[in-house]
Amino acid sequence: MLGLPHRTERRAKRERVMSMNRRQFIKIAGLSTLFGLGGKGAFEILRPGMLDAAEHGHGAPALEEPAEPAIRWGMTIDVEKCAEPGVVDKCIKACHSVHNVPDFGDSKDQVKWLWQDDYEHTFAGNENQYMADHVKEFPFLCLCNHCDEPPCVRVCPTKATFRRPDGVVAMDYHRCIGCRFCMAACPFGARSFNWLDPRDALNEKEYNMEFPTRGRGVVEKCNFCVERLAKGLMPACVEAAPQALAFGNLADPDSNVRQILRKRPSMRRKLELGSEPSVFYLV
């Protein structure tokens, strides 16, 4: 689709590529909007009919996607199973070690992808009075919700954070300018900024050599283990506690997660904000 093998060479030789690729298309569309041509007008000139397709999708990456995405990755978290001893710690450790997440302790500079909180705080604003005692005491695993309508993606000025067609809200650490607008926009507190050099809070001997660290001055968060999904593996946390966590395709009515959700009552965080989280808590 993208003519990948020779793309680099082509660009190096500065050959003129007559057809417009997606990036150029979005750039032109964006610039036309800026110069007052009007977004819709520009779209119509460039690619008639394209806008209607995009409007029914989910944000920018949907330009090339069909109206109903084939994949939307999601997760279910069985909070009761998480209460079994060691489960939560095992998940957090698996995630943080596989992604070289620095440990700044419980300080203002802390970075976290996956962490634990309680019912009252995880569901702050929606917490039920007189909730069953055991639910109140269960540990709730918190992570990026990989929202279907992610506010962080909406505000990012450089497309450093973006929603992939499979629903994963990804980060491009090479492009992030560290403005932290996404942190202000995220209603779930899922994003961490590298206030200091993360390598100072990592043990060099425990590096996962197959995954990078991040640099100072960029925002990071859970990536739903896209690097593992690409190899056909489950996310690290799910692999660490398959009895408690399940991961699958929310867009497929027959997927494991959809089957679970059909049978068990679940909760999601801050639904009133319309961001449509893809992480479901089973209670």
Partner: peptide, 21 residues
């Protein structure tokens, strides 16, 4: 304020009309 000031022009290099910034 920003963490990577040397990349600031990314805002113009990758124009993003949905961002208020």
């Amino acid at each position: 304020d920003i963490g990577q000031p040397q990349r600031m022009l990314n805002v113009l290099l990758h124009p993003t009309p949905n961002s208020i910034l």
